[in-house]
């Protein structure tokens, strides 16, 4: 177990390093740089612009830039944001908390919904239910992220049931309970949007996994023995379906993180999304790379958790080790 874990952590570390190097290299290819927009500013002369380039080290080689960045990572700063003029870490930490809150709630909602819907279609074996679910999933797949978010906001605006975007209302931070309630209320729509976005894929996989395990000989045998439905599900079908689903779990973390980007932007959720988008457009290199490495970290962590769960659930894996 310890060996398994330490090996995976080592791998994760190597991958993160690789991702940071490649990010720097890719970024080098993208046209334009942070200071370009200054040249449209009537007050700024070409000399001042080039002085800023030198100040930010934009005129140095990739290698130098990378090592400078690495040094600052070791200091815990994760580089320096050109736009904000402060270390990237101080931008990332407050926002990553919000993003994690949103994605973990969305993860919970989408997985419970997917398990429910997936199991329902397989158990019911009703053509009508199946085709309703299939068409709504196909429709969901074809509605762009932004549109779902916008429609939900429109719903909030028309009904007044939920706040129209944002994370906390002004002046509700007096008590912890009031604040929590307020944030929870703000959380509903963005989490719902994210859950809806990831639902079609999850439902598909859950259906497949459950169907497979129901066809498995030992489940058939258990059913033939007359084991009650509840126990059949909990003790036989779900554990057997768990393996492919758990490994999907790790990937769904990555998927959620990337789709939360746009949802956060339109819903005004103060996470990494709006920051990342703005820094991509303004070529604020270190913010972008910091965010990339951070989301890679989450994806890898998600996969690691999935592997550990598999290790716990599936004896075959322990045996292989």
């Amino acid at each position: 177990m310890i060996r398994f874990l330490s090996r995976r952590v080592l791998h994760a570390f190597v991958i993160l390093l690789l991702i940071s190097v490649l990010s720097f290299v890719f970024f080098q290819f993208a046209p334009g740089s942070y200071t370009d927009a200054m040249r449209l500013d009537a007050r700024v002369s070409a000399e001042t612009e080039s002085a800023w380039r030198t100040m930010y080290g934009l005129d140095q080689s990739v290698l130098t830039k990378y090592f400078r960045w690495m040094r600052s990572v070791l200091r815990g700063d994760f580089g320096f944001s050109f736009a904000y003029g402060i270390p990237v870490s101080s931008l990332l930490w407050p926002r990553i908390r919000n993003t994690l809150l949103l994605t973990s709630v969305a993860l919970l909602v989408s997985w419970s919904a997917a398990l429910g819907i997936g199991a329902l279609t397989v158990v019911r074996r009703s053509r009508a239910v199946e085709s309703v679910i299939r068409s709504s999933m196909a429709l969901l797949l074809s509605i762009p992220d932004l549109l779902i978010a916008l429609l939900l906001l429109l719903f909030a605006l028309r009904t007044g049931l939920f706040p129209v975007g944002g994370m906390a209302s002004l002046g509700t931070a007096h008590t912890v309970i009031a604040h929590t309630k307020d944030v929870a209320l703000h959380l509903v729509l963005p989490a719902l949007a994210l859950a809806l976005l990831s639902l079609p894929l999850l439902v598909r996989h859950v259906q497949a996994a459950v169907r497979e395990s129901m066809c498995a000989p030992f489940v058939q045998a258990a059913r033939a023995h007359g084991i009650p439905a509840g126990r059949l599900w909990l003790a036989y079908i779900l554990p057997a379906a768990a393996n492919p689903l758990i490994s999907l779990f790790g990937y769904s973390v990555g998927g959620l993180l990337s789709s939360s980007l746009l949802v956060e932007v339109i819903m005004g959720w103060p996470g990494l999304g709006p920051l990342l988008l703005e820094s991509i457009f303004s070529r604020d290199v270190h913010v972008v790379i910091g965010t990339t490495v951070l989301s890679a970290l989450f994806l890898i962590a998600g996969n690691l958790v999935a592997d550990l769960l598999l290790y716990a659930v599936d004896p075959r894996i322990r045996w292989e080790q």
Partner: peptide
Amino acid sequence: IIFEYVGNEDAQVLRFQSGD
């Protein structure tokens, strides 16, 4: 004066309409 940060113009319009 409170500057609320919303991601884009549509969100800005929605906030104004909702009275926020």
